[in-house]
Simulated scan of single mutants.
Amino acid sequence: MAGYLTTHVLDTARGCPAAGLKIVLYRVSGNSHSKLVEMETNSDGRTDSPILPQDKFKTGSYELVFFAGGYLRASGQGGDEPLFLDQVPIRFGMSDAEAHYHVPLLLSPYGFSTYRGS
């Protein structure tokens, strides 16, 4: 089985999934970024399909950019401009060609965390 990449975004301030949040995935090589896909989270805070499915999976360095600002504004959590968190980039490596990589984002207007999920 080939590897693949998924995510899940949870709004920790409101205690619910972050629906309607735009996410862009880039492949990173040095200082170069190559945009691979743009998706939006569904009502469960997940994308409807893997961000990087098995047939497109390659090991290497990647960056997920979560467009938190648009989501925070739409959910009434925007606050004063400029927002403290607008875009949240997470750069990570995938070295196992057979693994499922899951990169969740726990988000609030003033903080976030991530980890390698399952």
Rank of each mutant, 00 (worst) to 15 (best):
A2S: 15
A2N: 13
G3A: 02
L5H: 00
T6E: 11
T6M: 08
T7G: 01
T7W: 00
H8T: 07
H8I: 06
V9G: 03
L10V: 11
L10M: 07
A13R: 13
G15S: 01
A18R: 02
A19P: 00
L21A: 03
K22L: 07
K22T: 10
I23K: 00
V24K: 01
V24Q: 08
Y26W: 09
R27H: 13
R27C: 08
V28I: 08
S29L: 13
G30P: 03
N31A: 11
N31R: 08
N31V: 09
S32R: 09
L36H: 07
E38H: 00
M39R: 07
E40Y: 03
S43C: 04
R46G: 00
T47A: 13
D48S: 06
S49I: 03
P50K: 04
L52Q: 06
P53H: 05
Q54T: 13
D55A: 14
D55N: 15
K56C: 12
K56V: 04
S61D: 15
L64Y: 04
F66R: 03
A68I: 02
G69H: 07
G69S: 09
G70Y: 06
Y71E: 01
R73C: 03
A74M: 12
A74S: 15
S75H: 02
S75T: 14
S75D: 07
G76N: 05
G76C: 07
G78Q: 04
G79T: 11
G79E: 13
D80H: 12
E81D: 12
P82L: 09
P82K: 11
P82F: 10
L83T: 06
L83E: 10
F84H: 13
F84A: 09
L85R: 02
L85G: 06
D86V: 12
V88L: 03
V88S: 02
P89E: 12
P89A: 05
R91M: 14
R91A: 14
F92A: 05
F92T: 00
G93T: 07
M94K: 05
S95P: 01
D96K: 05
A97L: 05
A97Q: 08
E98N: 15
A99C: 06
A99P: 08
A99R: 06
A99E: 15
H100I: 07
Y101S: 08
H102Q: 13
V103R: 09
P104D: 05
L107P: 02
L107V: 08
L107K: 05
S108V: 14
Y110R: 14
Y110C: 13
G111Y: 14
T114A: 11
Y115E: 14
